[in-house]
Amino acid sequence: MSQPVIDPWLYSVALLLGLLIFVKLGFVLGKRYGVKGDANALSGAVFGLLGLLLAFSFSGAAGRFEHRRELITQEANAIGTAYLRIDLLPATQQPPLREAMRRYVQLRLDTYQAMPGSTAAAKAWADSVTSQQQIWTQATTVAQNSGSNAALSLVASALNDMFDITTTRLAATRDHPPAVIDLMLFLLALMSALLAGYGMADGERVPWLQVMVFAVALTVTVFVIRDLEYPRMGLIRVDAADQLLIETLQGMTPTSAHSP
């Protein structure tokens, strides 16, 4: 499972401290060398570039976050359809398949509810892949033995959809901007702080209230962007969407009656 190269909290703390330090550094340099007339124009260009990068980063992260939530809904629907298609198989062969499906859904939940990158997540993923193979073999064998080509086709297509969505979800968890984008955003923020401090050098002291508002606002914005990128680790999470899979699992009771 995907996890950030740098922890979002560590990244944010480093950014906040860096901004404060670079504002002070810019102020000292401005005092030493004097504020030039063209400083505001150059600062405006850098701030504009920073704002553009923040906007694109936020938009991309929010889009990927929504896409991951949609995939959970799609998987819940695919599992529900496959579970209903078991009704097309001989009644005596249905209970083992239903039990295998329940185990499979629990493994899928365990995969994403475990800490990303942990041994537990890796084990749950590997077990779910093994469970896929077992369900496929068991279901197709029963369908073939039933002599119904229609049942075989419907069950096989439903299982294919159920299994394919797992690969799509795995790809979505690994879909992040290149690390160089995070580095560029970090460095550009520090450059902006340096120029901001330099532009304040015509005053007697650093206006720390304004500086703190600037630094905190920028840091929170970057933190939210990174939090959206890794929604299993931070404050903004897709865990609520997992309730769909939980409800699907709860609906798979051994005594439930289903219709295809």
Rank of each mutant, 00 (worst) to 15 (best):
M1A: 12
S2F: 05
S2K: 07
P4V: 02
D7T: 00
W9K: 09
W9C: 01
W9G: 03
Y11C: 00
L16F: 15
G26C: 11
G26Q: 07
G26M: 10
R32C: 06
G34M: 04
G34C: 04
G37V: 06
N40A: 11
N40L: 12
S43F: 09
A45Q: 02
F47D: 14
L50F: 15
L50M: 14
F58R: 00
S59D: 10
E66Q: 02
E70I: 07
I79Y: 13
T81M: 07
D87Y: 11
L88Y: 08
P90G: 05
L97W: 08
E99K: 14
R102F: 04
R103D: 13
L107F: 06
L109V: 09
Y112E: 05
S118L: 02
S118Q: 05
W125D: 13
S131I: 03
Q132N: 15
Q134E: 15
N145S: 14
L154K: 10
A156Q: 12
S157A: 10
L170M: 06
L183W: 14
F186T: 07
F186I: 08
S192M: 01
Y198Q: 01
E204S: 12
R205A: 09
W208D: 08
V213L: 14
V213P: 00
V216Y: 08
V216F: 13
V222Y: 00
V222M: 14
V224H: 06
I225T: 12
R226K: 13
M233R: 08
G234D: 13
L235E: 02
I236T: 08
V238I: 15
D242T: 01
I246W: 11
T248R: 10
T253L: 07
T255L: 06
H258R: 15
S259R: 12
P260G: 02
